[in-house]
Design a protein around this nucleic acid. Sequence first.
DNA 1: GTCTATACACCGATAGAC
DNA 2: GTCTATCGGTGTATAGAC
Lengths: 219, 219
Amino acid sequence: MAEPKKKSSGAATKRKILEATLECLRVNGIVGTSARAIAGIGDFNQALIFYHFGSVNDAVIQAVGLMTEHQRDRYRDRLAEADDLAGIVEIARDLREEDAKTGSISMLTQAFAGAQGNPEQGKQLYAQLEEWTEVVAEGIDRSIGGTPAASMVSSEHLAFGLSALFVGMELLTAMDPERAPTDELLEEFGDLANMLQTLLASPLVQSLANASTDNKADK
Amino acid sequence: MAEPKKKSSGAATKRKILEATLECLRVNGIVGTSARAIAGIGDFNQALIFYHFGSVNDAVIQAVGLMTEHQRDRYRDRLAEADDLAGIVEIARDLREEDAKTGSISMLTQAFAGAQGNPEQGKQLYAQLEEWTEVVAEGIDRSIGGTPAASMVSSEHLAFGLSALFVGMELLTAMDPERAPTDELLEEFGDLANMLQTLLASPLVQSLANASTDNKADK
DNA sequence: GTCTATACACCGATAGAC
DNA sequence: GTCTATCGGTGTATAGAC
């Protein structure tokens, strides 16, 4: 109850700007995301963006941070319940379904694309991504941690690959939602996950994993 | 030898424009790709873009078409030689290595990202992508066509997923080449591919695939 | 902290000379 | 087919009133 007397505490405005920025990213894409466009969506003055964030680019970075933070907390709980590959694929399908409505990953993808040719911005956005991949890596560890496959792939690397797959899928799906076979692919992944999980527990895999490790030790 | 007398046949200029457009996409990203920026790179007049292509967007679409066509022909031959999963992964690693130098996929990614909020452009670019996924699907068919896994996943869908993975990886890698574990992941994929290939030939997989098919027939 | 007004660069696109 | 010149519009960003 420190400063609620003014027209707006400032924090509320900042939030309004960030939400409008996300919406703009989702609807217009990065090329259509300008100070004027954002202000038009949120119905506030364009100059506020520069007052609160300094530049449009910085507003975008902060907006993405707000979103990833929120999503990370949400999916950390969900991932904690999954303890096999099929469980992870199911979460992936939920995430995809959610994105079809809210476009959370699409915003992310657009912000990422906008960082091309701007290493500084790229590094900052990549750091946001890592908060997310970290959570995914934990989930993967729980799923295949005990199996010999864990010795062949790093869960961090796999989480990176999974993120890349999702970012790529959303990018391609946004281009032509009718033709992109995103949902079909995820459904088939469910079947594959079930098969793989069974296989990973088999003695055959154990021996193959050992052979692979031996090969590396050789050279 | 029809019209070599004029300053330029027009076809040569068109090509020059398209190549400059690709270079601009690669270096500046889609947000930094404007008629003036392209003309600056190729050292020609900005108005030529509108004369030959009507708009910057259309020039981008044509440029991407030129690139995908070229790459499709190149990798069709390479893929024809691969007859197992490890072979495909090896090609994937070459493609990644090549992209680190030429940025061919990065251009594609940038063009794709620019189509957000523009369904017309999105459809046209997606069609370009399909020329490429088609070739990949053929390669996948040759690799796992005989195995029971082929009954669980469509090669077209897998090719789409593989494309998405690559597009996503390049997008993430461009943001922070130092931290993105792209090469490490692809290397581990090589080991996994070898293991999977062996597994796919095992009788255990055969029975699992049958079970999966039966499940679908049930409902 | 928010608004209006404005500076100035750059954008896509076109008209018309060559 | 290529160039110069230019239009109207939009971009980022800031100064100053409130």
